[in-house]
Design a protein around this nucleic acid. Structure first.
Lengths: 336, 336
DNA sequence: TTTCAAGATGTTATCGATAACGGTTCGTAA
DNA sequence: TTACGAACCGTTATCGATAACATCTTGAAA
């Protein structure tokens, strides 16, 4: 008891005793156990983060944002890589609950994650959805506005003369980001009076090889499109590769745009026109919402934050008038 | 007690009782606390990972490798971002020990991290150094062979005709990677009979702006070098930016090589010649070593694993004979 | 000298899971 | 009927920290 008092800096301990305890702590290299402390206080100072892939730059930045915000509040982060796998994700959720994390940040694999999450809601377990919303699931959410983003990207393509635009979308149509981007794409077409054709929609796994294969299909069309809108950066990189192989020059022979920037790429080759999402802010904001909820500072109602992406125009899609665009280096800016 | 027996699937419980307990577990949505269990067993099924920056693709991949290996062994990962800050790092180490992680993976900020770590050794606390070694600290280590890697990179530059090669190194010479790369650079020069000049060594913070500024200085030299060897990818990207601004074309006007690949970059513009390190393997191997040590399967002696990097030659440094190199696209390979 | 208060220190119970052991029930053999 | 053992279920103690309460010490006032 006296030791506990010394450690927590409370009074009611004599000078001599305190000195002696401190000495012993040093000698034994004693470190109090937060685990045991948590048993009583019912606090573990830990929150969980589940993402499909930490190595994806978007999620890596998100993680950094969440970690920094959590640390400032005295919290640590248990990080899990769901690999986009529903079973693994469910396992992680149970596991983290069992580890008694005080809350959960989760970028769900797909809408099918709903089952695990309604469970959490039923138990009043605090969690925040990041990057991806789930229809019919009323909970705190931090995501990008993919509909508007996709519409702006598509409008940009249209504004520079493209009319036949292919879209590479997520093969799993249970992911909100993919769905919303397809939606925004369609909105832009409609607003421009361009008829929508299902033949221009290509479903692919959201990775490099998916983008690569989808683009091969696109290039095999009888009437090849003049531009491609890829669902995200990785997908666009795959597309780029297929285009190169077939001798297509971007933007001369094909326009190419996508969601999410590729870090550093802008400097080395100011190239891809993208909708850049503030990934780190996704992380810090969602962590903030979660911490508020954990500490009971959040009201009953769930909060929904939708962040806008920035359109960064680079040379990957040229004006369809034949006039070459001037270099857009300056849009890249000075190193930050 | 009976509940405990049911949960752990042990016998000595009647059919009817077991049924009743299972029913109650479902109704209450009861999840046993690993925390409490850990109090007795003295196990938390948790290990800590401390890296300078999770958003750096190298460490993000390392994290993924570590996480996957840990998961397969039933362990979770507490991830901390030290921001390369010694104080923060020390804080994290204490904190993780207090959280009773069973072991620690750490990419130390610098040699100055030694103080925290000798402490751990004294206590017999299991940990593994990743990516960076610390002189005079005898412990399990997984790192790249930066001396050989840097020598090969430099030899490559020399072999294609460069003789005046600048090196951008870490401004903090207490980091083993920076030191070893400088060493390899010097070895290569000596082997080729090229005199070493301290004027060609530029100390910079290892980030984009550091590489940018160092390159500005390089270009301001009275006798401008023909090639630059940057200490890592981020640094090289900064260098690239400075070169562009000054109208230098790579590789025509300046050769450029570095450590660590820039993901996806190879596809979009097969460009930078690099020493590519198997980052994910760093993570999984180090986690494996740590788990062995935790479970007591490791012997008394510490293990030192040194992984070789792959030289990936791309077009960022051309042969000094004036003969243009043919494109090296195929070195990039099919999407994996 | 006795009394009391304030300050210092120690005891007991608690968090949740479980090891170790104790008690109960019931069927079967003596 | 009694004895015995297996199967089943419950009680107590424990891990480490701490809340709540108890005890002890000391010095000064009555």
């Amino acid at each position: 008891m006296t030791v506990s008092r010394v450690i927590n800096g409370r009074d009611g301990v004599g000078q001599k005793t305190r000195r002696k305890v401190e000495q012993a702590i040093l000698e034994l290299n004693y470190v109090p156990s937060r685990i045991a402390r948590g048993l009583i206080s019912n606090k573990t100072d830990t929150i969980g983060l589940i993402v499909p892939d930490v190595a994806n730059p978007f999620f890596a930045l998100l993680l950094r944002g969440a970690e920094m915000t959590a640390r400032k509040a005295g919290y640590r982060l248990l990080v899990c890589n769901s690999e986009g796998d529903l079973r693994l994700e469910r396992e992680y959720v149970n596991d983290l609950v069992s580890h008694r994390v005080e809350g959960l940040l989760i970028a769900p694999a797909s809408d099918r994650s709903k089952a695990s999450l309604v469970q959490l809601i039923r138990d009043g377990f605090p969690f925040v959805l990041v990057d991806r919303a789930i229809p019919g699931l009323d909970c705190d959410t931090v995501k990008g506005d993919s509909v508007v983003g996709a519409r702006r990207l598509t409008e940009h393509l249209i504004s520079i003369g493209h009319r036949r635009i292919a879209h590479i979308t997520d093969s799993d149509d249970n992911v909100s980001t993919g769905r919303e981007r397809l939606h925004g794409y369609m909105e832009a077409l409609q607003a421009a009076g361009i008829p929508y054709s299902a033949d221009l929609i290509f479903h692919a796994t959201v990775d490099r090889i998916g983008g690569y294969r989808a683009t091969q299909q696109i290039l095999a069309l009888p009437d090849v499109p003049t531009a491609i809108f890829a669902v995200n950066n990785v997908s666009a990189v795959g597309a780029m590769q297929a285009l190169r192989e077939r001798g297509f020059s971007v933007p001369r022979d094909m326009g190419l745009v996508c969601f999410d920037d590729v870090e550093h790429l802008a400097v080395l080759s100011p190239f891809l026109t993208v909708m850049d999402q503030p990934a780190q802010t996704f992380g810090s904001l969602s962590a903030q919402l979660l911490l508020e909820r954990i500490s009971g500072r959040a009201g009953e109602r769930s909060r929904h934050i939708e962040l806008q992406a920035d359109l960064i125009v680079r040379e990957s899609c040229c004006v369809r008038t034949g006039v070459p665009k001037r270099p857009t280096d300056r849009l890249v800016g000075v190193p930050r």
